[in-house]
Design a protein around this nucleic acid. Structure first.
Lengths: 167, 167
DNA sequence: CTGTATCCCAGCGGATACTG
DNA sequence: CAGTATCCGCTGGGATACAG
């Protein structure tokens, strides 16, 4: 934390702060709040790269895949890279960007939730650590490394101090 | 892992396995895949409990809050508890269940993503560890405690062995 | 305060058909 | 293979009004 920000009045005083300008979760949902965005990103993390594979595996039509992938590229979560196999025409692949890596914990956490939900079929998809085979889980911690539960968190509205000096 | 399951053919052979029966993430999205579900759950984790507060803070209309909260209660992520302040009429509060705790990492991961996205306003909402004030982050690990990156994961389709004997 | 019911609209996403 | 365009149905969700 730098001292450019200071605490605003406690949260209980506010009404809705749903505005994407303030709430980080709202901004995240603006980018990946649709089902097609989530499933397409899942498939990218699971190894798919080409348009056709992505659409088919994510279970969306080409039209939906086209529009959604464009948005994901525009928002900087994915990038569309040309690559050339010698003797073949140029192809494109969709790959996760540095920023897009932040989506992985979300995928993992959703998968974990679903993993613990009752299911009809006994057949199931599992996400495991390649190194040891154990199931993938997510942990919530703070930047200092302490384990954090919902009760351990504080939500605050930060705003620029009126007299703040940049740099 | 028990030996009731065995590995199915590799993922590259499959088409879409979007079915909620198989894919845990799809099951998760069936429960919390709407924006109102996510924002309402966020507000529950942030401390709101009463219907009115939840609807207002989440920025949804009472009609939406009513329908969505019912679904969240039905799915076992929230519970609706009566509580009585002596001398007042019975009120109800919405609280996270044991199962609902699995949603917290998703909220935290979404918040983390949004936190690193460019924003218009300098004012912002932050989620911090009450103990030390550091920002909340999510880590992806395996059940054995190893740090896991997207490249470190394997996705497999598990299915009951035909000759499996229960218990 | 804690919801429900009704009307309405925008957006997501499926189906189909068509280009480079 | 890698998309784009069009049509269209469904649902999520806002606005408003009403009930216990």
């Amino acid at each position: 934390m730098n001292d450019f920000f200071r605490l605003a009045p406690p949260l209980s005083d506010r009404d809705s702060w749903t505005a994407a300008d303030w709430c980080p979760m709202e901004r995240a949902l603006d980018l990946i709040g649709t089902r097609s965005a989530m499933t397409l990103l899942r498939e990218v993390f699971y190894g798919a790269a080409r348009f056709d594979d992505l659409a088919r595996r994510a279970g969306v039509t080409p039209a939906v895949a086209s529009q959604r992938l464009r948005q994901l590229v525009d928002s900087g979560l994915l990038e569309r890279r040309p690559y050339q196999v010698p003797g073949q025409r140029t192809r494109y692949e969709y790959a996760v960007t540095e920023r897009g890596l932040e989506v992985f914990p979300i995928i993992a956490a959703l998968t974990r939730l679903g993993d613990r939900l009752p299911r009809e079929s006994e057949k199931m998809v599992a996400l495991s650590h390649a190194g040891c085979g154990e199931r993938v889980v997510t942990e919530v911690r703070c930047a200092a490394g302490h384990a954090v539960t919902p009760a351990d968190t504080v939500v605050s509205i930060l705003q620029p101090a009126p007299d703040a000096q940049e740099g």
